[in-house]
Amino acid sequence: MTTILIVEDEQRIASFVEKGLRAEGFTTLWAPTGADGIFHATEGDADLIVLDLGLPDIDGLDALASMRGQGVTTPVIVLTARTTPSATLASLEGGADDYMPKPFRFEELLARIRLRLRAAAPVEQSAHILTHGDIALDLKERTIRANGVTSVLTAREFALAETFLRNPGAVLSRAQLLSRVWGYDFDPNSNVVDVYVRYLRKKIGTDRLETVRGMGYRLT
């Protein structure tokens, strides 16, 4: 059974989320402090983590950094009252897979949890084919097939497509895409990511790469 770890100091919110998730068939764990959350995360007790940033002992961003620093790859959804763009970007750059502001609707949180769990599932692939839905990326030929059409990719288009296909459903910031496709030394103020996303959309369909305003892009 899938276990969701809720790192949240407000018992009322944690109980609300736990009740809803259990009704949907999930098992839940509640960690009221960052230290408890880090312990359960590093022990591998959860399949997904819902993380508040305003924790009583340590900041949620520090807890997230500790988890990722200890090799925890479990999907993390930040659920917080911090709604500034800087908090959103800091969370995503720090290793969060998604970000939801409070107050929130449980139905939306549930949908995001299910999406993150699907994205974390092993990607279907053969020896050299990476797939997601009806999109197939040939790692050998460097071609992509979508909507029944096969297209040849440039080196950068290929690297960008591979990054999205290895992280389906995850929101990838421009900075993350720059570092993975172009390298850390590339100018962070460049619009090259947007340009190549536009190129890739022409080959797989404009609706396949969703723009998440203020955050980045994701493969739907």
Rank of each mutant, 00 (worst) to 15 (best):
I58Y: 14
F186K: 08
D97T: 00
V50Q: 07
G60S: 10
D52K: 09
R201Q: 11
L79M: 01
D57N: 14
R68H: 12
E18V: 07
P85I: 05
V17K: 06
T2K: 10
L137K: 00
S190K: 05
V181W: 03
A161Q: 02
S91N: 05
P75D: 05
I6W: 04
A146T: 04
R105E: 14
R198D: 14
G69C: 13
D134T: 01
Y196T: 09
V149D: 03
T28A: 04
A121K: 04
L178F: 09
R105W: 04
G71D: 13
R180C: 03
D45P: 00
N189G: 14
T83V: 06
A161Y: 03
G95P: 10
G71I: 10
I4T: 14
A111T: 15
T131C: 00
T3M: 02
T33M: 06
T2W: 00
H128R: 01
I77H: 06
I77Y: 09
L29Y: 05
R82G: 08
A81V: 12
F158K: 01
P101G: 15
H40G: 04
E157H: 01
G44L: 07
L165H: 01
F186I: 03
L53M: 15
F186Q: 07
R12L: 11
P103H: 08
P168W: 00
D52Q: 11
G95A: 08
G20D: 11
E162R: 15
A23D: 15
E10R: 10
Q176E: 15
A155K: 09
R105T: 13
E10D: 13
E43I: 00
L21E: 06
L109R: 07
M1C: 04
K203E: 00
L165N: 03
E107P: 09
A90C: 11
V152N: 07
S91P: 08
V50C: 12
V78E: 07
P168M: 02
R213M: 06
F158E: 02
F106C: 03
P75Y: 06
A96T: 03
A96G: 09
D134L: 02
I38S: 12
D185L: 11
T2Y: 02
R174G: 03
E162H: 13
P122L: 00
V171F: 06
I4E: 08
S15K: 12
W30A: 06
A87I: 07
L48G: 11
I6N: 07
I113H: 04
A14Q: 03
P101I: 02
F158M: 06
M215K: 15
K19E: 14
N147Q: 13
K202T: 03
F158N: 01
D187G: 05
L153M: 05
A170K: 14
D36K: 07
S66F: 08
I144H: 01
D138K: 01
G34S: 12
D134N: 10
A155V: 08
R213E: 13
F104C: 04
A63E: 12
I13L: 13
Y196V: 10
A87F: 12
G54C: 15
L92T: 11
G34Q: 10
E108A: 14
G34R: 12
A90R: 14
